[in-house]
């Protein structure tokens, strides 16, 4: 039944859920036809509580850095500004990092938005498509001249994140290390590879411009071209360490020799 009236009341119901200052919608009744304002309030509270719980689970290091109470208040503001756009709660929270970047109250923690980006990418990797890492042993038998012409297929969950802040060190110190090691927030920026080759999401350190190489490989460029792009970004680009991170992380699911131009 979608008469204009019921549409209006649905929209009004939804608006009242998001804004507690609005009157509760008419027609919300409980047992014996009595108005059920309390029940409406409970429903509203459940929405905020469940979305806050989803954010807390998705951004545990952000929670730890700002504290539970602050996070809950911040989440309430975020949820009002960015209500879910999908009915799938797994997809909620993608706008959180951008929100943190603009949120004045966390201005003293300039790295917080990048920590949220890292946690969001870990979340996406956790729920991304499965794929089997390739057996790389045949690579060693290729002619050296053919190696620069290789094109790699990267794992669907593989993403590189580059930050002006030591995001991986901060994340590890708060998520993993049982004995907390201090991290200097103003030490050098870090790049990481996030990938989930099997059941666990991995976080592997990348050298500077490692993210450039990975992005170029994802675009389908040859290893030689991708390495040249990364070296253009960082003169001391370390190809070995970047490839080792990709290989150790199971981030390569296929490779093709490519069309060599030399013969």
């Amino acid at each position: 039944m979608t008469s204009p009236d019921s549409l209006n009341s649905e929209a009004g119901f939804a608006r009242a859920l998001w804004d507690a200052r609005l009157p509760r919608p008419a027609g919300v009744i409980g047992r014996a036809g009595r108005p059920a304002a309390d029940r409406f309030d409970i429903h509203r509270n459940n929405i905020f509580a469940s979305l806050t719980a989803a954010l807390r689970a998705r951004f545990p290091v952000v929670v730890r850095l700002v504290g539970e109470a602050f996070f809950a208040d911040m989440a309430a503001i975020f949820i009002r500004r960015h209500p879910p756009v999908s009915p799938v709660i797994m997809e909620y929270g993608g706008a959180f990092a951008a929100f943190l970047k603009e949120f004045d109250a966390v201005g003293a923690l300039p790295y917080l938005a990048d920590i949220a980006r890292l946690e969001w990418l870990r979340h996406l990797a956790a729920h991304g498509a499965d794929a089997v890492p390739a057996d790389l042993s045949p690579l060693a038998r290729l002619a050296p001249s053919a190696m620069a012409e290789l094109r790699f297929t990267l794992h669907p969950t593989a993403t590189a994140l580059s930050s002006a802040y030591p995001v991986a060190s901060i994340w590890r110190a708060n998520a993993v290390a049982p004995d907390l090691q201090p991290v200097l927030a103003d030490s050098a920026g870090e790049s990481v590879l996030i990938v989930r080759p099997h059941r666990q999401v991995l976080l592997l350190d990348l050298p500077p411009a490692g993210d450039v190489l990975i992005a170029a490989l994802q675009e389908g460029r040859t290893l030689g071209d991708a390495a040249a792009l990364a070296a253009a970004r960082d003169l001391d680009f370390d190809l070995t360490l970047t490839l080792a991170a990709l290989f150790r992380g199971g981030a390569i699911t296929g490779f093709a020799p490519g069309h060599s131009s030399s013969n």
Binding site: A148, L202, L223, G224, A227, A228, L243, R248
Partner: peptide, 23 residues
């Protein structure tokens, strides 16, 4: 340049004998 890439690739393969474990 191609030989440098080949060297890196082979070194990376050697470095990657043990797969990464989840942290």
């Amino acid at each position: 340049a191609g030989l440098a890439i080949a060297g890196s690739l082979l070194s990376a393969l050697a470095l990657s004998a043990a797969p990464a474990a989840a942290e």
